[in-house]
């Protein structure tokens, strides 16, 4: 693999379709509720929880649990590191696409 190839810089935590989706939604929404994420990403509660746990452990999101009336609600917000990680991942994806689409210059 050539030195400086964008793949070498991929973050395994972020370079994953569901987790990237979570970060993208949380970034756009400022804060997002668990149920909204589950619906938009078409996941089971258990599976979404696993991905949220990975992101929280990596320090990319904050999870806040509370109640509205008798209804429990879980809100997810992006941390500063999460915002940076999302921007870097999108930048790397664009570089990857650019390299794939200009094969003649690379080979």
């Amino acid at each position: 693999m050539p030195d400086g190839h964008p793949v070498t810089g991929l973050d395994e935590v972020v370079h994953q379709r569901v987790r990237l989706g979570i970060l993208a939604i949380a970034h756009e929404a400022r804060r997002v509720e668990f149920g909204y994420l589950r619906t938009q990403l078409d996941l089971t509660a258990g599976n979404l929880s696993k991905h949220l746990s990975v992101l929280e452990t990596a320090g990319l999101i904050d999870i806040e649990k509370g109640y509205e009336g008798k209804r429990g609600r879980t809100w997810i917000t992006l941390t500063r590191d999460g915002t940076t990680a999302l921007a870097e991942e999108i930048g790397r994806l664009k570089v990857l696409i650019a390299r794939v689409e200009t094969p003649a210059e690379e080979t």
């Binding site: 370079h15 994953q16 379709r17 989706g21 938009q40 078409d42 996941l43 599976n47």
Partner: peptide, 26 residues
């Protein structure tokens, strides 16, 4: 409903398209 995540080797085009689609929905 999806019960497991998609592999990390997803196509960059698709990942970016997903990001655009999700942010548009939000």
């Amino acid at each position: 409903m999806t019960t497991d995540s998609v592999s990390t080797g997803d196509d960059p085009h698709r990942l970016l398209a997903d990001v655009r689609d999700l942010t548009g929905r939000v």
